[in-house]
Amino acid sequence: MTVQTARPRRTILRRIVSFLVFIVAVLVVWEAFKLLAGDPIFVDGEKIWDPPLTVWLATDVNLPHTWVIWNRTLAPVTSGAKESLGGYLIGQAVFTMRESLTGFAIGGVLGIALATLFVHFRLIERAFVPYVVASQTIPIIALAPLIMFFTGHNVSSVIIIATYLCFFPVTIAMLRGLRSPDPRALELMRSYAASRRAVLWKVRFPASLPYLFTALKITATASIVGAIVGEGPGGMQEGLGRALMFFSQQYAISPEKLWASIFVTAGLGILFYLAVVGAEQWVLRGRPQAAFG
């Protein structure tokens, strides 16, 4: 029974702090691992530390020092280029974000519309819902390369991938949400002789919102995954997926580039998720809610 009516400000603060502590902890473990089992550290050509162990994962190629990765983001993306690696990656992140946001929005609207249709027409529901449910058990992302090659290596193909990855979870959650009102609430509306539209707007939609947000939190990540897989293996010339693919090939020479791309991707995923959580907090303000996401 972890239900609270109002989330105290302190909880939010504690979450932010715990997140920062987590990031610091990752950095500390990372560097401690390198000190323990990485490559010797040189300062001005002088060896100042020789780790007691050697583990292949901790070498400078496989796990560069965090400050090396940071410094690399400030340096030009390729020698002679005007743009820094960090600037380049942020540009690619914006590009990817545009695709995934579009897919997120289209998929979400489609999912809501379809679930509303299913709730009102039993036969359509029975014809299509089994496939929507089954889609959760199969890796539909496998379709990504097919779509890229079928519709061309362009932005709209990536958006299609992001869209269908978002569409299925939203439809299922929304269907559950629209069905979630207390039967007595529906009987109450019936006693008012309320129209279907009124039942939908006054009872079903409001009741479905928590379910919708649960799905949107999942699809926030899914839309980015879809975009990355479309861009990278799908052969786009822009976006984080392409950066990951491209810098992966330069890993032996400069692994920092791949690491920096991964960090930017991770940050983008968390930012998108937090934006949805923020929207959820605002839309569902005043309602009793689960104590955690």
Binding site: R14, R15, S18, F19, F22, N62, K217, A220, T221, I224, V225, I228, V229, L240, L244, M245, F247, S248, Y251, P255, L258, W259, S261, I262, T265, A266, L268, G269, I270, F272, Y273, L274, F292, G293
Partner: peptide, 23 residues
């Protein structure tokens, strides 16, 4: 503390680690 953190970290597109794992 751990649960909300894990849920948030789960929002990272983990497939981005595929190239690192490959290397």
């Amino acid at each position: 503390t751990v649960l909300p953190l894990a849920v948030a970290i789960n929002a990272i597109p983990i497939v981005a680690f595929a190239p690192i794992a490959n290397n």
